[in-house]
Measured scan of single mutants.
Amino acid sequence: MATGGRRGAAAAPLLVAVAALLLGAAGHLYPGEVCPGMDIRNNLTRLHELENCSVIEGHLQILLMFKTRPEDFRDLSFPKLIMITDYLLLFRVYGLESLKDLFPNLTVIRGSRLFFNYALVIFEMVHLKELGLYNLMNITRGSVRIEKNNELCYLATIDWSRILDSVEDNYIVLNKDDNEECGDICPGTAKGKTNCPATVINGQFVERCWTHSHCQKVCPTICKSHGCTAEGLCCHSECLGNCSQPDDPTKCVACRNFYLDGRCVETCPPPYYHFQDWRCVNFSFCQDLHHKCKNSRRQGCHQYVIHNNKCIPECPSGYTMNSSNLLCTPCLGPCPKVCHLLEGEKTIDSVTSAQELRGCTVINGSLIINIRGGNNLAAELEANLGLIEEISGYLKIRRSYALVSLSFFRKLRLIRGETLEIGNYSFYALDNQNLRQLWDWSKHNLTITQGKLFFHYNPKLCLSEIHKMEEVSGTKGRQERNDIALKTNGDQASCENELLKFSYIRTSFDKI
């Protein structure tokens, strides 16, 4: 039985969820670079991206490699990797027998973001014989899940209580170790020597080791999670996991709180800001991140802002960003909400898709409305799209047979046209069989910064309504002859009103 693990408890099935942008060198404390989270699957090609990484700022997932063999891993080693800020997950990587050479110096898994409450997941690794993470000293947050690894031993010899604050939620089941077939031998045991430290858990006094050649490092209890030197002297209180010299914040392997210019500090002093819960960055760093993602459509890219001495992905609820200094300031009234469309555009074809934009005031991208039916549609669209004030790209209304009016965009005031449909149009209306009105132009103002209007096959939309939009939106004169079809717009509506004058002759039985 794995020490510190839980057996036999019912657990939810383990679901495996399925960018080499360097964020800056980590400095003297770390020998390499800070790398983003990685999802490495199918083959070993991307694994080489770990070569210079000291910190993975995010998670590391290595999974679904069915053609790899043990010899493929023999020359692979990433000794610079010290810390993973989120979680480490391995799933069905064939041929991998140990992690001792792959990650010989991995010391800390912070667990800032977890995989279903777990910071370390080893699942269905069919050839893994031992973990071998002999320098792993601290899992700051989260638990361990090690399950269905039929060859995995050296679990009962690990004292997880020396690595985690609590072992109650560890789930370590259905491994070879369960069948008591392992016969784990710690260093020196074969020669009758006791080389590794022994600890007591559940009444068992057991030597602690990761492999037959690597003991588990056990520091004096007084050192807590700070770690200790090879001689057993406690590291500085700002260290986490390990250090090369005692009581020196510049000799830590990793930091308990924050890293700044080669030393570990309790908090980031001005003019620095907390970033990702582990390091200090200056304003320029946060500003660069903001600008890199301002026009990016890459998933996970955030326009970072500053709030409460932190550089964070977005302002919290009730705050909006001051564009001059990136500071989050309290909103006066309802907060603006910028919604970034991942692929640059979004099609609204149902109430469900409209709900995804609920509360958005600025759309960074283009909207395509293609709704053919739905219950209580006008009210639903207004509830979900009615706060949109600005669209950076274009607005396209296409084959939306259920629409009679666009009044559900009740606050839309600006279409920038930074991206144009077919390279020309910022407003595009095609084949809307029941569209009769755009907006009530006596109450609604709309500016279209650039781009043209396109109207074709809107049989109940009168040309007068379209011409009014040209005047109000500032697009009059931009359109070419064929942009607004004269014969297919309003051709099934009563669009022309003329005053009919009647004269009559009164007659009676005795007068003409």
Rank of each mutant, 00 (worst) to 15 (best):
K294L: 03
G262W: 01
P271T: 13
E97L: 07
Y273P: 02
R263L: 02
P330N: 14
C293Q: 02
N117F: 10
L96W: 02
E57I: 06
K310Q: 06
I56C: 01
C53N: 00
L152W: 01
S317M: 14
L96N: 00
G188H: 09
A119F: 00
R279F: 15
N308A: 13
C239H: 00
L155P: 04
V55W: 02
R162E: 07
H59G: 11
C293G: 06
Q299F: 04
F116V: 00
T85Y: 03
S166P: 12
Y304S: 02
G37N: 14
I40R: 00
L64M: 11
G318R: 05
K100P: 01
C328Q: 00
N42C: 13
L47E: 01
S323F: 14
N43S: 09
Q303V: 08
Q245E: 14
N242L: 12
R74V: 02
N257H: 07
P197V: 13
D101G: 14
P271Q: 03
G111I: 00
G132N: 05
K310P: 02
L174S: 13
D248E: 04
T157I: 04
S237G: 14
K251N: 07
C53H: 00
M65V: 03
I82Q: 03
N309A: 09
F103D: 00
L327S: 07
S244P: 03
A198M: 11
K310F: 10
L76H: 13
H214C: 11
T229G: 07
M321T: 09
L120S: 01
L131W: 01
I158L: 11
S284W: 07
L60K: 01
N242K: 03
S324K: 11
I40T: 02
M65S: 08
R263S: 02
K310M: 09
D86L: 00
D177C: 09
Q61M: 12
P336A: 11
C215S: 06
Q276C: 03
P316K: 04
L88Q: 01
Q287T: 09
H48R: 05
L81P: 00
K67H: 03
P270I: 05
D288I: 03
G241V: 07
D288L: 12
I201G: 05
I185G: 15
P249L: 03
C268L: 01
D288P: 02
N42I: 03
F78I: 03
N150K: 08
K67N: 05
G300A: 08
G111T: 00
T85A: 05
V173R: 15
N282C: 15
C286N: 01
Y273W: 12
G318V: 11
L89P: 00
N195D: 05
P220N: 03
T329H: 15
K100R: 07
D169Q: 09
H48P: 11
C53F: 00
N195S: 07
Y118P: 00
C255I: 00
Q245M: 14
G192C: 11
L327R: 10
M83N: 00
I172E: 02
H59W: 11
E130L: 04
L81T: 04
E168S: 15
E57Y: 11
D248T: 02
R279Q: 12
L29W: 08
L327T: 10
N42R: 09
T194D: 14
G300I: 11
L44F: 10
Q204N: 14
P187T: 13
N117Q: 08
N150S: 11
D184K: 04
S296R: 10
I139D: 01
M65E: 13
P197Y: 06
G58V: 00
N175Y: 06
H302L: 04
V200A: 10
H212N: 10
L114F: 01
K129L: 08
A198I: 05
E207P: 06
H226V: 07
I146Y: 01
S225V: 07
Y272M: 15
P36M: 15
T85V: 09
N295D: 11
I158W: 04
D165I: 09
R69P: 11
L106F: 02
N175V: 03
M38R: 05
L89G: 00
F283R: 12
L90K: 01
C196G: 08
T320W: 10
G188T: 05
I56R: 15
F205M: 13
P330D: 12
Y154T: 11
Y304P: 05
C182T: 02
G58I: 00
N42Y: 11
K191F: 12
W160T: 01
T189Q: 12
S225I: 14
P336V: 11
P271C: 01
D165W: 09
R256F: 12
E231S: 09
P104H: 00
G241Q: 05
L233R: 13
N202K: 09
K294M: 02
Y30L: 09
F91H: 04
P271V: 07
D277W: 06
K148C: 13
L155W: 07
E130T: 08
N325T: 06
R145E: 01
D261H: 14
Y94L: 09
L233E: 11
N202M: 10
D184N: 05
S98D: 01
D261N: 03
G300F: 04
C268S: 00
C328D: 00
T189E: 13
I185F: 15
T194I: 15
Q276F: 13
T199V: 11
D72M: 14
C280W: 00
P104G: 02
C315P: 01
V200Y: 13
G37C: 03
N202W: 12
